[in-house]
Design a protein around this nucleic acid. Sequence first.
DNA 1: GAACCGTGGGA
DNA 2: TTCCCAAGGTT
Length: 306
Amino acid sequence: MLQQTQVSTVIPYYARFLASFPDVLALAAAPIDLVIEHWAGLGYYARARNLHRCAQQIATVHAGKFPETEAQLEELPGIGRSTAAAIAAFAFGRRAAILDGNVKRVLCRQFGVAGFPGAKAVHDRLWLLAESLLPENDIEVYTQGLMDLGATLCTRSRPRCGDCPVAAGCVAKRDGRQGELPEAKPRAAVPERTSTFVLLTDGQRLLLERRPPSGLWGGLLVPPEGEPAAVAARFGLALGEATKLPPFKHVFTHFRLTLEPMLCQIDAQFQAAEPGLEWVEIGRAADAGVPAPIKKLIRQVASARG
DNA sequence: GAACCGTGGGA
DNA sequence: TTCCCAAGGTT
């Protein structure tokens, strides 16, 4: 959950998740749709599938117990080099280096590392630095301290260098370049996309469709996407009048999406042959495991019907 | 090696 | 409003 997601955002999701899946075996035994539902709204939904597969591998391949080495941990789905090191260090006291956003920022400033940290050469150098700095003992304290230094003092903007325990050796502070390091990602133009979502309702319920596992909103429930005629054809459905609801924009990291909702009444007796279709009460649809922008869209339907 | 994958908060 | 990016990993 904490991959590319701030702690404060994760906390409520984490609490609900653990309440439903208290241990790795419970998670492994859970249906994937339920896991996805708990993740809805958090983003990066591949993490949910990876975590679920990870639990299943631990249950079956590792007899329910986490492996302890970085190499074995990194073989698990969703666990890369940094997460493997974090588990190895915090759970098993192993001398392993992490490299998250906080550590990158601290290292770039402390050692005056130039270049965008995402560039391979810079990234490689940061990993070498992180490994070279590992203490012989107290790896948990060191690792937590390093991350907390980045999270609380060596912050992106307005770092509190006056309170920093390692300010004396910091290249960025010496040169007054705290605001320039780490260097920003070179930005490309953000693509714009437009997509129509067809809100099929029988007056009480809304028809939602589960998206394929990969890609945007993978595994989540959303209204069928596409032009109304195409959606109708796909479901073998005769559509009545389609009403346009107000469009709205949603800004993702990689593109801007304009959602154009179309509201259509259909027969409650409609049974689609396709799997993955679900009728959901309109009042509950926004909590049925849909991504955040779809929640907005569903609220429009709720208000449109009064 | 670059593109892709969400959402929310801070400035 | 707009941009940046956060306890990164996979394709």
